[in-house]
Simulated scan of single mutants.
Amino acid sequence: MVVAPDLVVSDPGDEHAVQQAERSRSLRIGLLENGFNLIATLPADVFLAERIAQLQPDMIIVDAESAARDALEHVVMATRDERRPIVLFTNDEDTRHVRDAVAAGVSAYIVAGLASERIRPILHVAMARFQHEQALRRELADARSELAGRKTIERAKGLLMRRQGLSETEAYEKLRKTAMDKGLKLAEVAQRILDVADLLG
């Protein structure tokens, strides 16, 4: 899916608009020539999130020039709940916003990179980078979840030790046996014990 300005040039005398429309057309042709399925070309507007949710594209290509930052903000907002690889093609050589773009989730920021033979490797690298970052995010989320689970188990053990006079080993074994008997994870049993304790005071 491409997010780009309208190809229709209202004033044929506006050289900048004509050049931008031609560049945008070249990008789309390059995508098709390289075997990519271009499912839609959309403007960066307030309806972008809904359209992306409906279309479910594998990748979003932002074709922008002077309005690159505005277009990018629309795309980032539209994909914040369901991340997708974003590739920004621009002729704007002002690179002050590259760091912000990458931090916002752009997988590739390409300046003047519209030669047809460059499109395929650029998009493949962007997809690989996105998948790698997603894997790292999942690992981080799993590590945080595991740490939170350990803390919950420790709190539940402490509660059992205080209330039932158990040793640490006995409290842990009681949690483990309950988890096995009920087919639950240890952290789930621990959380239930803490919830009941909170409820009963």
Rank of each mutant, 00 (worst) to 15 (best):
E146T: 02
R120D: 08
R51K: 15
I60C: 00
T152C: 13
I60A: 02
E22H: 05
Q19F: 07
I122P: 06
P12N: 12
V46Q: 06
R118P: 08
A71Q: 04
M1R: 01
R51F: 06
R144T: 11
I60P: 03
I86Y: 01
M127R: 07
L123N: 06
V46F: 04
S26F: 06
T90H: 01
F47M: 05
I60G: 02
Q56Y: 02
V18I: 12
D58C: 05
L184S: 09
T95A: 10
D58I: 05
R96G: 09
R138I: 14
E173G: 00
Q56S: 05
M1K: 04
A197Y: 03
L147K: 01
E139A: 05
Y109F: 15
Q20W: 05
A179I: 11
A101G: 15
R120H: 08
G165P: 07
T169E: 12
M161T: 09
V76P: 02
K157E: 15
L42E: 03
L147W: 01
R150G: 14
N91V: 11
A103S: 11
E82A: 10
R51C: 07
P5D: 13
L159Q: 09
F36A: 12
R25W: 00
R163V: 09
V125W: 01
G158C: 08
T95H: 13
T79V: 13
M1W: 02
E82R: 11
P12M: 14
A156N: 08
R118D: 13
V9D: 08
V102F: 15
S167W: 02
K151H: 08
L27S: 01
A135L: 10
A179K: 08
H97M: 05
D63Y: 03
V189Y: 11
E173M: 10
S116Q: 15
R138M: 13
E154N: 10
I153T: 10
I110L: 12
V98Q: 13
E73M: 01
A171N: 04
R129Q: 12
L42N: 03
G158R: 10
S24V: 12
I193K: 00
N34V: 00
A126Y: 04
T41Y: 03
Q164A: 07
V87P: 08
A67P: 06
K177Q: 13
G35W: 00
R25P: 00
A115G: 14
R99P: 04
L147E: 07
E73N: 06
T95C: 04
A171K: 02
T41K: 08
V111K: 06
E65V: 06
K157D: 09
M59G: 03
S10P: 09
Y172P: 00
P121M: 11
A126G: 07
Y172R: 06
R138F: 08
R51L: 09
T90V: 10
E133G: 09
V76M: 04
R83H: 09
G149M: 07
L159Y: 03
H97F: 13
K182R: 14
L7K: 11
K157S: 09
E188F: 08
R118A: 10
A112E: 15
V76G: 03
V102L: 15
R176G: 02
G201D: 10
E82W: 05
R99G: 13
A135D: 06
F36E: 14
F130A: 12
L31S: 04
E93F: 05
M127Y: 00
A128Q: 15
R176C: 02
N34I: 00
A179S: 13
Q19I: 03
L72V: 05
